[in-house]
């Protein structure tokens, strides 16, 4: 598990030489993405994972929370329990499907909140500069003084378990890095001549921010945020692993990994399953955001 990487985003300012047939920015991004098979494959994988999670209630063969002492720790490939059962005899396949919902939710929702909040603060800091910038960015620096896992454990540890607290925790952890990326990107855009041209036409700060700054800052910030989805998933599973996530009967990959730990001598493969799900999901998100970053590096 790694920490949140420093933001990197397209800063190339050279002009694109030939005018492509595809019009507009997103067109050219898609044009590049089309031939990036790894990214496309991972995008497909993510779609499948999301669909499995969304339709878990219909897809899962059994009730994920119904335990059966008679059927504890069945192996993978069991006639009734395709992926075996856990230490309380609950069907692993069903639990994995349901657990995906929590993991995806924890991967995406905090990133969205953090992007909204951190992005807003970053744009304000970058646009106004001066004292406003100092107050916002120095505050963020303090959060950077914590490795992200530690910060997450600290906040969640104090707030206590539960899905809501976990979301708050992850959002707080993800705000500073997003804020920093948004600030850098905004400060860069802010110094460009077209912003001055907009100011010279008498536009209000709000209008300039929404019409000129936002569209130019959005893509680097979104690309960066997308790299945080996988980190958010891992952090969330780590918190659940420590008992700082959903409460027990509920299925969650991190929590399942934690409770199955006692059973590694009996059913090591079953115990490894939840972690494998986390790993695959996180790799898929990582590769997609990598591909997205490369595709978005299009000069525009």
């Amino acid at each position: 598990m790694t920490d949140i990487p420093a933001g990197s985003f397209p800063t190339d300012k050279t002009q694109a030489a030939p005018a492509t047939k595809v019009r507009g920015y997103w067109g050219s991004v898609w044009n590049r993405l089309r031939y990036d098979y790894v990214t496309l494959f991972c995008l497909g994988l993510i779609t499948v994972i999301v669909l499995l999670a969304v339709f878990a209630p219909w897809l899962s063969p059994m009730d994920p929370e119904r335990s059966s002492m008679a059927n504890r720790l069945r192996p993978i490939g069991h006639a009734k329990f395709t992926l075996g059962t856990d230490e309380q005899g609950r069907d692993m396949l069903s639990r994995l499907l349901w657990g995906g919902r929590v993991s995806l939710l924890m991967g995406i929702v905090p990133v969205i909140f953090a992007t909204l909040i951190g992005g807003t603060f970053g744009i304000i800091a970058g646009y106004y500069g001066g004292k406003v910038n100092m107050v916002i960015m120095r505050t963020m620096d303090v959060f950077f003084a914590f490795p992200s896992v530690l910060l997450a454990v600290a906040i969640a540890g104090s707030l206590g378990g539960g899905i809501g607290n976990q979301m708050i925790t992850l959002t707080v952890v993800l705000i500073p890095p997003i804020c920093r990326v948004a600030e850098t990107a905004t400060a860069q855009v802010r110094s460009l001549d077209f912003v001055d041209a907009a100011r010279a036409s008498g536009a209000s700060t709000y209008s300039i921010l929404t019409n000129h700054v936002l569209i130019n800052v959005l893509s680097p910030v979104l690309v960066y945020s997308s790299t945080l989805v996988s980190i958010s998933i891992i952090l969330a599973s780590g918190l659940s692993f420590l008992g700082l996530g959903v409460s027990p009967p509920t299925a969650d990959w991190g929590l399942m990994l934690s409770t199955l730990r006692q059973s590694i001598y009996v059913q090591p493969l079953v115990a490894a399953l939840p972690g494998l799900c986390i790993l695959v999901t996180s790799i898929a998100f990582n590769l997609v955001s990598d591909g997205l970053r490369q595709a978005m590096d299009v000069k525009a």
Binding site: M1, T2, G238, L257, P274, G275, L279
Partner: peptide
């Protein structure tokens, strides 16, 4: 890619296994 994506605690469990 693996190193960035892997949850360390799962890696730990796999090592134990």
């Amino acid at each position: 890619v693996f190193g960035i994506s892997v949850p360390t605690f799962w890696l730990a469990v796999v090592l134990v296994i």
